[in-house]
Measured scan of single mutants.
Amino acid sequence: MTYKAILNGKTLKGETTTEAVDAATAEKVFKQYANDNGVDGEWTYDDATKTFTVTE
């Protein structure tokens, strides 16, 4: 399944996708990606669109 992350960081804005077996696995991948890029904020998840959003 393909999951998407939308990054609304102070220094990084954009989107990325990952293939994962479930939302929990995708969330770990996206949170690591955000952390590696200095983005730390509030996370939300929309199951209907399989989209995570982080906003700083």
Score class of each variant (00 low, 15 high):
E27R: 06
V54G: 01
F30S: 00
G38D: 07
L7Y: 13
A24N: 07
T17W: 14
V29R: 08
A5F: 15
E27C: 14
F52P: 02
T49N: 08
Y3H: 03
V39K: 00
A26M: 00
G41A: 03
N8L: 13
T25F: 07
T25S: 14
T55R: 05
F30G: 00
A23M: 12
Y33Q: 04
T17Q: 11
T2M: 12
T11H: 13
E27P: 00
A48Q: 11
T44I: 09
A34C: 12
W43T: 01
A48F: 09
T18H: 07
K13I: 09
T51Q: 04
I6E: 05
Q32P: 00
N8K: 11
F52K: 00
E56M: 06
E19F: 15
A48T: 12
D36C: 08
G41L: 04
E42A: 10
E42C: 11
V54I: 13
T53R: 06
Y3M: 02
T16V: 15
Y45H: 01
A26D: 01
T11L: 12
A5W: 12
V39Q: 03
V29Q: 07
M1P: 08
D22G: 04
A24M: 12
A24T: 10
K4V: 10
L12S: 08
T2L: 13
K10T: 12
E27D: 04
K10I: 14
A34Q: 02
Y3Q: 03
Y33G: 02
A26P: 02
Y45E: 02
N37F: 14
V29P: 01
T53M: 09
Q32C: 06
N35D: 11
V39C: 05
T49M: 06
K31N: 03
T16M: 15
N8A: 07
A5M: 15
A34S: 04
D47T: 09
V21D: 11
M1D: 13
Y33T: 03
Y33C: 09
E19R: 13
F52D: 01
V21T: 11
T44N: 08
F30T: 01
T53E: 07
T53G: 02
K13M: 08
L7F: 15
N35A: 15
A26I: 00
L12Q: 08
N35W: 15
K4I: 11
Y45D: 00
A20P: 01
T44C: 09
Y3S: 02
